[in-house]
């Protein structure tokens, strides 16, 4: 058997990491669905850690791969395939990932924290607009907007912080000076 070239090795490690991120996202999503949900739409979006991680590690196409696979797998697991919840998740996921990808690429001043808040905001706003246009034609649902924006702010900051710490940890881990003994002491 031939040895892998450097590029093939990189592609392979990327594939493995994306698969792990998708699995982690699915796990976080299922875990979060077990938590009580006090407000409609008031989810934290824990699984977005995986998407943002992929976005900042590999870029927009990889983030799309992670979010789409995560949505399809979780909708199969939760039994929400092709029903309104699935449509909301798909629309919100696509728009927020696209927004975060473009911001990351073209607005360098915004770091992962602000970008995560923007992602949460666009995710919620998209879901609300889709709900209004497709299912509920009553404008009362926009009364939820203030609460959703506040929740987006808090959740976005939390998710951004977690992803930032995870990314820092990951970069330490793949650095050539990393060793398991050092981790044990840290």
């Amino acid at each position: 058997m031939d040895l892998l070239t450097v590029n093939e090795g990189k592609a392979l490690s990327r594939l493995v990491i994306l698969a792990l991120l998708t699995a982690g996202g699915v796990g976080l999503f299922v875990f979060e669905s077990l938590l009580p949900q006090p407000l409609p739409g008031g989810k934290i979006g824990l699984s977005q850690v995986a998407t943002i991680f992929a976005l900042y590690l590999f870029g927009l196409p990889s983030a799309f791969a992670v979010i789409l696979m995560r949505i399809f797998i979780t909708s199969l697991l939760m039994g929400t395939m092709l029903n309104p919840i699935f449509i909301f998740a798909l629309a919100g996921g696509i728009v927020s990932t696209l927004t975060m990808g473009l911001v990351r690429r073209y607005v360098g001043a915004i770091t992962i924290l602000g970008n995560s808040v923007l992602g949460a905001l666009t995710h919620n706003a998209t879901q609300l607009v889709v709900a209004y246009v497709v299912y509920i034609h009553q404008s009362e649902i926009f009364w939820l907007l203030p609460y959703l924006i506040l929740i987006s702010l808090a959740a976005g900051l939390g998710i951004g912080l977690v992803t930032r710490l995870l990314l820092a940890r990951y970069f330490v881990m793949i650095s050539p000076h990393y060793s398991l003994e050092a981790e044990g002491n840290g």
Binding site: V107, A109, I110, L150
Partner: peptide, 18 residues
């Protein structure tokens, strides 16, 4: 740890909510 642009986003979001 937030950059100035992040702080602008945080404040703007809060103002938007209120």
């Amino acid at each position: 740890i937030a950059s100035p642009a992040d702080r602008v986003i945080i404040i703007a979001t809060f103002l938007l909510a209120s």
